[in-house]
């Protein structure tokens, strides 16, 4: 009985994913043309390409991940090096969990009010970067902590026996040992950033023009798809094409994570 249900479920799942992929490919292909990736959108995004959107996406996601990593990695290091079972660290853990679990639209709302409004950055790539970094930071800290804690404790003890300091051990041994997992976490965050619309819709805005500074508005690919579907009349076909590209990007990121994790613990 359970076996039958299980088999049906497996086939349903396979069918669903294949159907979705084929649907994306077929409908997406209808709007795809030579130069799609190199042209700016025209007619509110209903025709033309997505070149400017790709630029905005790369800019926002890359800088947001870099900004978030700059804060998350030191935080994760401090956590793994000094964490004791005290009230402070338990509180930190709870706060991290809340940060990871908070819905993206909440981060979007928060960023929209704080950075766009209060700090008067407007609908800009900068607002988007900071908001996205806020959303990604808890995810990154949690991932980095797991990666650092997974390193062999014998490695640290060995360094202690050789008279090395905590920091030189961390820098020269622990971080290189944890590198594949740290990279995988950062790539995962990049994927989240690429796929996220909720946090950027009300911060980076929906402009489809080429951004010339961080204070310009610029839609990422996911925001562009969302905007085409919800606001632009007759934008569904264009949305499919853009979504297909987004899908391919996400698959590539997924593949990179697998590759990073599959690699041996030490790359020479």
């Amino acid at each position: 009985m359970i076996k039958t249900i299980g088999q049906i479920s497996v086939w349903l799942l396979i069918g669903l994913v294949v159907w979705m992929g084929v649907d994306m490919a077929v409908r997406g292909a209808s709007g795809f043309h030579f130069g799609y990736l190199f042209e700016a959108p025209a007619d509110m995004g209903r025709s033309g390409g997505i070149a400017t959107i790709l630029v905005s996406t790369a800019l926002i996601v890359t800088l947001a991940v870099v900004l978030a990593v700059l804060f998350s990695l030191p935080a994760a290091i401090i956590y793994t090096e000094f964490q004791r079972d005290t009230r402070f660290w338990r509180l930190m853990h709870i706060i991290l969990d809340i940060g990871v679990g908070a819905p993206r639209i909440v981060w979007g709302l928060f960023g929209g009010v704080l950075f766009v409004g209060y700090f008067n950055l407007g609908f800009s790539i900068l607002s988007g970067i900071i908001t996205l970094a806020c959303l990604l930071a808890p995810i990154l800290v949690t991932g980095f902590i797991v990666g650092l804690q997974a390193t062999d404790p014998a490695l640290r003890k060995q360094c202690v026996a050789l008279g090395l300091t905590r920091w030189s051990t961390l820098w020269n041994q622990v971080l290189p040992a944890a590198r594949p997992s740290l990279i995988a976490t950062a790539v995962l965050a990049t994927g989240r950033g690429c796929g996220d619309a909720a946090a950027l819709l009300f911060t980076a805005g929906v402009a489809t023009t080429l951004p010339t500074s961080l204070y310009d508005s610029g839609a990422t690919l996911a925001v562009f798809v969302f905007h085409l579907l919800t606001v632009i009349p007759g934008g569904q076909t264009a949305a499919y094409t853009a979504a297909a590209v987004l899908f391919v990007i996400m698959l590539a990121i997924q593949w990179m994570i697998t590759a990073a994790n599959g690699k041996g613990r030490f790359a020479h």
Binding site: D152, A161, G163, N172, A177
Partner: peptide, 20 residues
């Protein structure tokens, strides 16, 4: 200091861990 001690006394654990 630990680094001074390591220069006076060497310790080789049962299953030594090779470094990076």
């Amino acid at each position: 200091g630990r680094h001074q001690l390591a220069r006076q006394i060497g310790y080789i654990p049962q299953r030594p861990r090779m470094l990076h």
